[in-house]
Design a protein around this nucleic acid. Structure first.
Lengths: 332, 332
DNA sequence: CTGTTAGCGCTTTCAA
DNA sequence: TTGAAAGCGCTAACAG
């Protein structure tokens, strides 16, 4: 019952030619006579031949697969990014291997190593690590997302984290806030550092003295954001507004804000999330479309894979404030 | 700069033995003398040798990769399922290829074909298609998730869709509702059919005549759920409660419910989502942990990959009502 | 335009 | 216990 899959040799035999010629036909080589080509094509159809991608990759030293490495697939931001990359990949018939680092540099190393070992054609990476020396001689094109690789000349698609954070704070200040809290990830990543810097920029530009009590850096893995929010709100001199530096923190913070019935507080989230527009008040966000980031990254990668060789570039995905209510609340 | 990666032959040479013996050591074959083994192991370390997974797969006719096929990675339900599968896979050092069907049977076919062609070691599939004849002689173990393959004797991890939906409706009835609307996907999938059936079961058991005006089946791809909700709420004789048959529908419906200021309506969602607990009123759900489904499916697959051969089984992941407010509101 | 030969890196007969 | 040789399915050289 289990017919072994036809091999190229079978096709060649059926078409009364050599494997090489059959191979040529299959790979669209022009230098094959029309009649031979027709015979081979017929044989392919008759036998239901499908080339073996493994053998092909082994021979070519390269795979038709791209790797995508992110913090965590379940993270809504990355889920959207991946969705978009995958869509574009599938349209081109290339498959995608996803892997998560779980925000562990060590794990990132292992995962990337494995992917390289498999000779993926290209890599899209949301790197958690600071050092990419071992990628310097990467045999395949690399596109970084969300955070650029600072020690490597490689393409990246990022947002202006610092500027975006600054925008958020300025937006809140424009609505009268002077005591604005920051809730963000611990500063393992450049992204986190830039966003905090943007927060500080804005305060400084407004001549507001920084108050370290208002800066909460939480462990990304744990659900600490809610605890941090509670601490902030219970301060003797509490903030009148909160800036959440990423979606995960927003998702962690808001339940606490609501539980404490402090929906009067100003709130801006860096990054959108489900229901942000539906809860009351609706959440003002700094929009940085994950789909767009995914698309830009994939486009870049595919263009390199197609042999184009544009200068290495850090592409800035646009960012804008989407006012929805929570960011326009004034201080009490 | 570009040191070619060491091959098994290099290791063998360095250890002054044959490739086969080196191979034996690497694959943990016992029948190798201690001294030879030590030399080979030393060589592996010295050269930084890493076996080529491609060549290995080609030779073995099997890959150390598992495939996961779902509707869409961006779907929060599947994102969580995948996250869990991936976690377990990574722990075992096997990589995961994700692919989406976008709910197109045709695409599912292509995607599965490609995966099989790559000789993946196993497959976890949220199938959108009704026919899996071509999988009957699948060379690798298959575990279906979310919906079982009805024409195939294969493992599956599902929830009791019909019972769960019934639970939801009974819960609403217990709080006084008699006119309960259903919003769910068009009936392409068994899941959708079962959930609608459960809805009907409950009404019938309660002696409530079905009203087809209260049943809205929406196109999963589009954001039709919101429109459907508006239509329902504007009915001359509107429902006092809505049952949303899946997370996507809930995410589509709730913005409309809030926009129309109809948060007085009873609401139960099949499936949890971000902020469900935070919006007002908080959303009562039928909980079916995607993580658990992912874990059960992965466990099953890995146990088969490990050579165990338990009888084919459809595993039912548990389901329960989590009351949070919206499902406990009585009719006006 | 076509075919023969070699070999990608690995594992597996099968004999020593 | 070990090794030589064959070959997984494919494609690149290089003749013809």
């Amino acid at each position: 019952m289990k017919a072994p899959r036809p091999r190229l040799r079978d096709v060649a035999e059926a078409a009364q030619t050599s494997t090489k010629t059959a191979s040529r036909v299959i790979n669209g080589d022009v230098r094959v006579s029309a009649s031979t080509r027709a015979r081979v094509e017929q044989a392919v159809v008759d036998l239901g031949y499908r080339p073996d991608p493994l053998a092909r990759s082994l021979r070519l030293g390269q795979d038709e697969t791209i790797g995508v490495v992110v913090d965590e697939v379940g993270d809504p931001f990355f889920a959207s990014v991946i969705g978009e990359i995958e869509r574009m990949a599938l349209d081109r018939g290339v498959s995608v291997i996803i892997a998560s680092t779980r925000r562990l540099a060590e794990r990132e190393r292992i995962v990337l190593d494995g992917l390289l070992q498999r000779r993926v054609a290209g890599l899209i990476i949301a790197s958690i690590s600071d050092t990419h020396a071992y990628l310097r001689t990467s045999p395949c094109p690399l596109v970084f997302i969300d955070r650029a690789a600072e020690d490597l000349a490689a393409d990246a698609v990022v947002v202006d984290d610092r500027g975006g954070a600054r925008m958020a704070i300025e937006h809140l200040m424009r609505h009268g806030h002077r005591r604005i809290a920051y809730i963000g990830d611990r500063l393992d990543t450049a992204t986190a550092r830039y966003r905090l810097a943007g927060y500080r920029d804005a305060l400084e530009a407004a001549g507001i003295a920084p108050d370290e009590d208002l800066v909460a850096e939480v462990e990304p893995a744990k659900g600490d954001a809610g605890v941090a929010a509670e601490t902030l709100l219970r301060l003797a001199n509490p903030p009148t507004a909160i800036f959440s530096a990423n979606t995960r923190c927003s998702l962690g913070t808001l339940p606490t804000v609501h539980r404490l019935r402090r929906t009067d507080i100003g709130f801006v989230s860096f990054g959108d999330f489900a229901m942000a527009d539906t809860i009351t008040p609706a959440i003002t966000i700094i929009e940085h479309s994950p789909e767009l980031i995914g698309r830009l990254a994939a486009e870049r990668l595919f263009s390199r894979l197609a042999g184009e060789d544009p200068p290495v570039e850090t592409i800035l995905a646009p960012l804008r404030v989407v006012p929805r209510g929570s960011g326009e609340l004034g201080p009490a």
